[in-house]
Design a protein around this nucleic acid. Structure first.
Length: 587
RNA sequence: GGGGCUGUAGCUCAGUUCGGUUAGAGUGCCGGUCUGUCACACCGGAGGUCGCGGGUUCGAGUCCCGUCAGCCCCGCCA
């Protein structure tokens, strides 16, 4: 193909078909850059070879016209070799050019120059087929293909079986909002598109499938983000007769294979592991970016009786003072330091407290408010020295965590302290429940079938919020790639957990009766994992938006701009579905 | 549901601070010159509901109100 021609092909005759990437008309000579899936090659149109009619048509041919070209591959004259081009040592001397399809002037460019800005994302989505012609975009999807291919190969090698589960499923009241599909046959009843194959894969374990996987489409009707699409692809895995380590090992093998195969990078196995408690204590988040080395420290003991009202007040109010050391951070400008308040505030804290360490003590910020003893204690605890910056947050816990995490990442990037590398991390022992901020009642932090740490079973009814689960997340460079758990396979334990969640036998029966019923007939111990593959591909492609690695993504309003979805349907069609349109009740 | 940014030529943007002549640039497009270019170069030309609606004003791309769209974030995402 055009993009594959190299000097070894010189002398061979080729017939190429593709798109006119660019054309350079020098008057006598015309050069056409011909693009196909493998890349671009230069075609030369020489009046000594081509008829004057053929030269005339080559002169008129526009960008993105589809053409077939026949000719010999020749070496370029030495002075005309283009080292920036994979095919730059050769060109095709055209002897015949046929237009296979015309092309109007495109609304957005395909062939961008090095410094040219891409068209707006809105237009790129509207004319997605043109945007996807760009070699960078095509490259993302070739990479995506290789990721999927590698995963399938690795799991096949590990004796997993790929099983498909339904797209039309039972609506679930738990979790994310369902995309709902009306039933034509049963008016008033609805299917839901799957949020994940969770219940099906557990049922497959009851069926004895033992090692299941699926690359599954999942749909959730929630608001979008750069890293969140309503429709996404997940690697779904479930295994029987396993504990955490068995699941982790499988995922580690798969991820290492992907990174090796697709990026040519070796990642160390086993991945680092850290409990949820450790992660939040040391980094202020359940998805720490370990490329930033700095860790948080509790400074409360050193400041308990401080004259500085903010510190003492926070501690007396039941909160804590925590902080971290930014090596060399004393050189940061006043502007950057003043900006820390906003970073902390955006994360829900009243503000950020900081001081610079110099040879004479602490300068600026809270440094002046502390006694000599307190400063010395802080320096010792943080192992901080002259030239460092100390940043801290005083106050109650959840806000403090979020702010410390935000400050750590913000300053990590400002100080250029984010190391290169692939830092995978298992975060383990998530709490089984968290408190619903509105009702105050416990709600599952993962899902209601998550197994619990056997040491904590006795606390189930007494202190549910303190129970550690057998759920785990996989974190890559500060980004959550996926999560999983060892599940509950004992029907009576499942009933106890549901009871704590305020779901009685009747409600449980109505919501997931089929799962509970299946568990009556011999459910093996099992557990699994799910990985967001769009995010994996995004990271490997070096991007920051899923839209770069999903062929036809939705906008932030969940609309498809190219085909125009969603769209109204005819009243007649609605009638057949037993659905009546109601007027919007806008005020 | 809330907050922020953006919307001007096919495309990318300037012009909006502080209302005032005929709204500019680059690129693409069209025409011309050019036999080693590679974002070819050079010369010329066409191309605008200033997102949409309303208001203030002698006068609105510019000010005010509303609305639509795209993007980023919070909420939400078991």
């Amino acid at each position: 193909m055009a993009g594959e021609l190299r000097s070894e092909h010189v002398g061979s005759r080729v017939r190429l078909a593709g798109w006119v990437h660019r054309r350079r008309d020098l008057g006598g000579l015309i050069f056409i850059d011909l693009r196909d899936r493998k890349g671009v090659v230069q075609v030369s149109c020489d009046p000594d070879v081509l008829s004057s009619e053929a030269m005339e048509s080559a002169r008129r041919i526009g960008s993105e016209v589809v053409v077939a070209i026949e000719g010999d591959v020749v070496a370029r004259p030495p002075e005309a070799v283009n080292p920036d081009m994979a095919t730059g040592e050769v060109e095709v001397k055209a002897e015949g050019i046929v237009q296979l399809a015309p092309a109007e002037t495109t609304p957005i460019l395909v062939a961008y120059g090095a410094d040219e800005e891409l068209a707006s994302e809105e237009l790129r989505l509207r004319y997605r087929y043109l945007d996807l012609r760009r070699p960078e975009m095509l490259g993302n999807f070739v990479l995506r293909h290789r990721v999927f291919h590698t995963i399938r190969g690795a799991l096949d090698e590990l004796d997993f079986v790929d099983v498909e589960t339904p797209m039309l499923t039972r609506p679930t009241p738990e979790g994310a909002r369902d995309y709902v599909v009306p039933s034509r046959v049963s008016h008033g009843e609805f299917y839901a598109l799957p949020q994940s194959p969770q219940l099906y894969k557990q049922i497959l374990m009851v069926s004895g499938f033992d090692r299941y996987f699926q690359i599954a489409r999942c749909l959730r009707d929630e608001d979008l983000r750069a890293d969140r699409q309503p429709e996404f692809t997940q690697l779904d895995v479930e295994m029987s007769f396993v504990a955490e380590d068995d699941v982790w090992t499988v995922i580690e093998i798969v991820m290492a294979a992907v990174w090796k195969e697709v990026a040519g990078r070796t990642v160390e196995r086993p991945f680092q592991r850290m409990s949820y408690r450790d992660a939040t204590e040391r980094y202020g988040t359940d998805k720490p970016d370990l490329r930033i080395a700095w860790e948080l420290c509790d400074l409360s003991d050193d400041l308990r009786s401080s004259e500085f009202r903010i510190f003492r007040g926070a501690i007396e109010g039941g909160g804590r003072v925590r902080g971290f050391r930014v090596p060399g951070g004393a050189k940061l400008s006043r502007k950057v330091l003043d900006g820390l308040d906003k970073v902390a505030q955006d994360a829900g804290a009243p503000g950020a407290l900081w001081t610079k360490l110099s040879d004479t003590g602490a300068q600026g910020g809270f440094g002046a408010k502390l006694s000599e003893t307190e400063l010395t204690a802080l320096r010792g605890r943080l192992q901080a020295k002259e030239g460092d910056l100390i940043v801290s947050i005083a106050g109650p816990e959840p806000q403090g965590n979020a702010a410390l995490d935000a400050l750590r990442r913000h300053l990590g990037s400002v100080m250029d302290a984010v190391e290169e590398g692939d830092r995978f991390l298992w975060v383990t022992e998530f709490p089984l429940f968290e408190r619903d901020p509105e009702s105050g009642e416990p709600v599952p932090s993962h899902h209601p079938f998550t197994g619990l740490n056997l040491e904590d079973v006795d606390l189930l009814e007494k202190d549910p919020l303190s129970i550690r689960s057998r759920a785990y997340d996989l974190v890559y460079n500060g980004s959550e790639l996926g999560s999983g758990s060892i599940r509950i396979n004992d029907p009576s334990m499942q009933r106890r957990v549901l009871a704590v969640l305020g779901i009685g036998p009747e409600e449980a029966e109505r919501k997931f009766g089929f799962l509970l019923e299946a568990f009556k007939y011999g459910a093996p111990p099992h557990g699994g994992f799910a990985i967001g593959l769009d995010r994996v591909v995004m990271h490997l492609a070096g991007g920051s938006s899923l839209r770069e690695v999903i062929a036809f993504p939705k906008t932030t309003a969940a609309r498809a701009l190219m085909e125009g979805a969603p769209a109204p349907v005819a009243d007649e069609e609605l009638k057949e579905l037993g659905i009546k349109r109601i007027r919007r009740t806008d005020a």
